[in-house]
Design a protein around this nucleic acid. Structure first.
Lengths: 90, 90, 90, 90
DNA sequence: AACGTTGAAATAGTTC
DNA sequence: GAACTATTTCAACGTT
């Protein structure tokens, strides 16, 4: 880190500043999201329920990518039906 | 914190030591879990698949508790069938 | 929520979609930040130390000093010298 | 995995159940730890500072000093005085 | 043994 | 101010 004269010092400063700028942008978007929830709430919607919906939609999207194969074999061994995912067998 | 003579000093020490003991126990259990995976692996089982099974069983257990009600209403509005959870509509 | 025919249904759908779009943007920025850290790491910088720097730049001096003061007090109570950080006393 | 009749099926089931039991124990201990923190908090102690203490006691002195050294170097590079922690320079 | 990936823990922020 | 949620941080793990 101390070689190259002050070069890496400059690099460090730039990394730090780039991150700080990106975090600023991120913060703004987070505030935008909060605004939309606020607006929805003002329109009579239940924010908590909306959050659940969003969570569910995210989950559904990721479940699609779930890998099969060995996992299914094991599920069968444990009495969990592989296609339709049933809870614990006892 | 500085009142009561050294009493709170003793209290602090005791809290810290209780936590350290509990963390020690927790660590041992984590090692036990690792041992079981190891043993299973030695027996020819696929550890990664086992982890997925465990995750699934945990998820299934918690899904059962999921609250319904408003959420279902909203799901219907968004074209997500409430009973059987389908992915995104577009 | 069920009044006004399907109007609020449309509203809900729009709120959900606006949020999903914003969350997508937010995710991209988060990934950008991760990239910068990655790049910095590739350039030989210590990511953990960088995070500390960022945290300290965000916090104002007084908060920081206050917190550090409490920690020192506790160290003394436990017989850990505050300046030079020694491991466990017994 | 499909050889030996249902033998390995039984084995798998046993591995899974052993792990689930251990994870349950681990969870209980984690809750115990949370309780101790809660109790300490109720007694007027600063939980965050306690966590720092625990972390420092876990780390050995040399590691810690090394990490703090890097942070100081970075601070200097960014024009932040290392001893007294100032917020943003511009 | 470094690397990224993933899961758990902790902190911060929000709501009631 | 207590509980919940979301974000961030940290550590473990398999991978290369």
């Amino acid at each position: 880190m101390s070689f190259y004269g002050g070069l890496s010092k400059e690099h460090l400063k730039q990394f730090i500043q780039r991150i700080e700028r990106l975090e600023e942008e991120k913060k703004i978007i987070a505030e935008d999201i909060a605004s939309v929830f606020s607006e929805a709430k003002g329109g009579g919607f239940d924010v908590k329920a909306m959050r659940e919906i969003l969570k569910k939609r995210k989950l559904d999207a990721s479940e699609l990518e779930q890998q099969e194969g060995i996992v299914d074999t094991y599920k069968i061994a444990l009495g969990m039906t592989p296609g339709d995912d049933e809870p614990k067998e006892q």
